[in-house]
């Protein structure tokens, strides 16, 4: 009898206990589907992404969509107020979400958001960083690793060039950004565990 689903890609964290696990998932899926479609549209606009094989496009998106969403939706996490805004626009405090069962993942999301926002990236920089997050040659199941690696290197070079141009005295920003990649992997793993818990105990 799950009572809460503490993901901001949802209209509300409250779940009707009368509903079945399947219908809860169906509703949740309808909430986050538009955001996933936006990630796919974003991927299509990355120069070179459409030249990858269909299999590898799907593999990269399957593995990286959550990480892209984390970067795109850092604005939902208000670090100062310690609140999370859900899709309905309503804000919930960390304490409230914690009382609903949110744990380490929520804390880690705030940590990540705080560090990323501290870099004060422009929209263009954020967009290029997001492309680097998505095009990672070490994702599992890729059939043409070399092609993905070549595109990844091109994107990383472009990101370094843009950061160097925009922040000539702060090249450490580029290093800090690359160090966000393992942080995102860690968040992705924690999120997968939550999904597993949802599947086993909807």
């Amino acid at each position: 009898n799950r009572m809460h689903l503490v993901c901001p890609m949802n209209t509300s964290p409250y779940v009707d206990p009368q509903k079945s696990g399947h219908s809860i998932w169906e509703e949740f899926s309808m909430s986050f589907t538009p955001a996933v479609r936006e990630v796919v549209e974003f991927a299509k606009r990355i120069p070179g992404f459409k030249d990858l094989s269909q299999h590898d496009q799907v593999s990269l998106l399957k593995a990286g969509t959550f990480e892209v969403l984390v970067v795109r939706f850092t604005s939902l996490f208000n670090v100062k107020e310690r609140t999370v805004t859900f899709l309905s626009g309503r804000k919930y405090s960390v304490e409230a979400l914690r009382s609903m069962g949110a744990g380490d993942l929520l804390n880690s999301m705030f940590d990540f958001t705080e560090k990323l926002q501290a870099l004060n990236l422009s929209e263009e920089e954020m967009s290029l960083f997001t492309a680097v997050v998505l095009v990672s040659a070490d994702r599992s199941g890729l059939e043409n690793v070399n092609s993905v690696e070549a595109l990844q290197e091109t994107l990383i070079r472009a990101l370094r060039s843009l950061i160097t141009k925009n922040h000539p005295n702060e090249i450490a920003i580029f290093t800090k950004l690359l160090l966000k990649l393992p942080d995102l992997r860690s968040l992705n793993n924690m999120h997968s565990e939550q999904l597993l818990a949802f599947k086993v105990h909807p």
Partner: peptide, 27 residues
Amino acid sequence: FSDPASNLGLEDIIRKALMGNMEEKQE
């Protein structure tokens, strides 16, 4: 649980969203 995306329907959403792109490529 190595593939949550497939198990929870994400792959289906991704494939459908990519479809236009894939059809273009096949042409």
